[in-house]
Structures are given as structure tokens and as C-alpha cells.
């Protein structure tokens, strides 16, 4: 009996270890452990074993079954492992990926959003005004009466009803103060228009970011601190910033801001206009509102504005401003 068992074990283990497919392994299992398998047949022979030998024979048979089962499991694991590695071995990851391309946000949108997020961190809310403006909102209320040398109708688009396409987003300052009592702390991203030939550096329509802060005791130091913080947030702490005295009818004192940053190509560029809100603007607002909440003796404020196109051009080294409105996918795909 024991010899018989040894022979059977040897045969079964050899067959199982030689099985190189799941089918052969299953056939081996059936051959030994199946209902009419060899091991099963031996176990059934237990009935004829004398009672006193049963524990011994029983153990021998149990060991046999355990050995066969163990070998089967081991081979099964071996086969699975081989199949698994075969399944990934053929994966040629040098083949080009095929996921469909995602879309892109326009570079001006991306830049505008960076600027908006930065101003929001400083507590500015967004304000809005119409592109089609009245002369009053665009010029008169901004201390630029009809005969003012700074008021240039030739460069402004007019509608037949006398309204115009705003030549700057500063009109939003007026829109905001007309309807909102101080304090106001707003930015207004939007379009402005200039009646001019389009070329590599000029568009008839451009994107501006306007800002206004009016409250009690706002100083030139606030203006300086705010814009210095902003430009360094946007273009790096190493950004050089210069405020150069300038003239705008609606601010006094007025400055132009030149900045120099590695991100912008490392050259000085004229970037923004800013200044302390001119008292004449506050007076125009008071008159329009019919109250004195914007009395220039009670409140003060600063305003600023800058164009986004030239910034985007410097940031991304865009050689021609028209690329920003041509919407060529070969261009857009790079952002």
C-alpha cells in the first residue's frame, strides 16, 4: 500500500509540475482528485483496510491528498503568474498615447484670471460696466470736457445715437460710484476700443484691467503698496517697479508705471497708468448722485488701469498682437 501511494505521488507530482496550461492542470486534478480519480479510488479502498491499520493508512492517504493538492495550487499559481507577466510583457509603452487632446483657455483669459485672483487676495471685488457708453461716463465725468486736449473724438468709435464704444475701462469707475456708496474696492476687466489702424502692435479693441479704491484716508502710499504687491505677485519678487509722473485728466497726481521682470523679457516696459482720483471726478459723482458721500474732503481714492495684450505678448514672447485674435489652433494649443 505504501509503495503504491509513493508511486502514485511521484507520478502525480511529475504530471502536475509538467502541466503548462490551465487545461492540462485541470486534467491532472481530475485524474487524481476527481470523482473517479486515482487518489479518490485509493481513499475508497479504506473500507477494506483492517480497523487497526486505518489510522496509519488514513494518514498516508491524507498526506498524499495534501501533497497533490499543494502541488496543484503551486502550479496554478505558477501558471497565473506566467500568464500575468505575459499579459503586460507585450505592452509597448513607446507607442504614442492616444487620449484625445483637452481644450485650452485663451492666453488672455489665463492672464486675466491670474490678475483677478491676485486682486481678490487683496480684497478687490469685480465690477462691470457697458462697452457702449455715454460721452458723460467716458469723458465728462472723468474730468475731460469736450474741448479738453486729452479728449480725442477722432480716435473714438461712435454710434448713431451719440453714444460711443468706451475708449478706456475708466468709465466703470463712474458706473460703480454712481450706484455704490464708498467704500469701494473694485477691479473691472473688460474691453476698450480705439479707432486706429490694426498692425503688429495695435488692435482696435483691447483688454484692460481697471481698478478703483475709494474710502476715507486712502493715500498715494496705498496706491504704491497695492500695485507694487500686485506686480511682484504676478511677475516675481525681483520685479523692478518705477512710478513716473504723468498726466491723466481723472487722476492727480498721476503716474505711469514701468516694470522690469525676467518673466517679461528683462526689459523695462511701460505698463500701467494710475493716480489718486481727481477731486473733479468726485464732484461729478456727487452732482450725479445728488448726495455728498463722495465729497473729496471726506474720501480719497486711487485708480489704475493696464492693458493685458502687451503683457501677454511679453510673458509668452508673442511677436504679433494679432495672433491674440486670430484664434489659430496651432497658437492656442500652446497654452
Amino acid at each position: 500500500m505504501e509503495q503504491q501511494v509513493d508511486a502514485l505521488r511521484e507520478e502525480a507530482l511529475a504530471l502536475i509540475s509538467a502541466a503548462n496550461s490551465a487545461a492540462l492542470l485541470e486534467a491532472a486534478r481530475v485524474k487524481y482528485l476527481g470523482k473517479s480519480g486515482a487518489v479518490t479510488a485509493l481513499s475508497e479502498g479504506m473500507r477494506n483496510v483492517p480497523k487497526e491499520e486505518r489510522p496509519k493508512i488514513g494518514k498516508i492517504l491524507n498526506d498524499l491528498r495534501a501533497a497533490v493538492t499543494g502541488a496543484l495550487e503551486k502550479s496554478q499559481a505558477r501558471l497565473l503568474e506566467a500568464a500575468d507577466s505575459a499579459a503586460v510583457a507585450g505592452l509597448d509603452l513607446s507607442l504614442p498615447g492616444t487620449f484625445p487632446a483637452p481644450g485650452t483657455l485663451h492666453p488672455l483669459t489665463q492672464l486675466m484670471d491670474r490678475a483677478v485672483q491676485c486682486f481678490r487676495r487683496m480684497g478687490f471685488a469685480i465690477a462691470d460696466g457697458p462697452d457702449i457708453e455715454t460721452e458723460w461716463h467716458c469723458f465728462d465725468a472723468l474730468n475731460t470736457p469736450p474741448d479738453h486736449p486729452a479728449r480725442n473724438e477722432q480716435d473714438t468709435f461712435y454710434l448713431h445715437d451719440g453714444r460711443l464704444l468706451r475708449s478706456h475701462t475708466s468709465s466703470v469707475q463712474i458706473r460703480v460710484m454712481e450706484t455704490t456708496p464708498p467704500p469701494v474696492r473694485i477691479i473691472a476687466p473688460g474691453s476698450a476700443y480705439r479707432r486706429d489702424e490694426v498692425d503688429a502692435t495695435h488692435l482696435a479693441q483691447f483688454t484692460q484691467m481697471e481698478g478703483l479704491y475709494v474710502a476715507e484716508k486712502v493715500t498715494l502710499g496705498d496706491l504704491k503698496g497695492t500695485l507694487e504687491f500686485f506686480f511682484r505677485e504676478l511677475f516675481g519678487s525681483g520685479t523692478d517697479i518705477q512710478f513716473r509722473p504723468h498726466f491723466f485728466p481723472f487722476t492727480e497726481p498721476s503716474y505711469e508705471i514701468d516694470i522690469r521682470a525676467e518673466a517679461l523679457g528683462g526689459e523695462w516696459m511701460e505698463l500701467a497708468g494710475c493716480g489718486m482720483v481727481d477731486p473733479a471726478v468726485f464732484e461729478a459723482i456727487c452732482k450725479q448722485r445728488g448726495d455728498r458721500v463722495y465729497d473729496p474732503d471726506k474720501v480719497s481714492g486711487f485708480a489704475f488701469g493696464f492693458g493685458l495684450e502687451r503683457l501677454a505678448m511679453n510673458l509668452s514672447r508673442i511677436p504679433d498682437i494679432r495672433m491674440l485674435v486670430e484664434n489659430d489652433l496651432r497658437f492656442l494649443n500652446q497654452f
Binding site: 483657455l105 485663451h106 488672455l108 464704444l165 482696435a204 484664434n327
Partner: peptide
């Protein structure tokens, strides 16, 4: 929309 594969354009008002 950009996530859905669309590219943002900016065209002129005029």
C-alpha cells in the same frame, strides 16, 4: 469646456 476638448477663442466685437 476646455476640459471637454474645446479651445477658447477671443474674437472682436466689431
Amino acid at each position: 469646456l476646455a476640459g471637454a476638448g474645446f479651445h477658447e477663442a477671443r474674437t472682436g466685437t466689431l
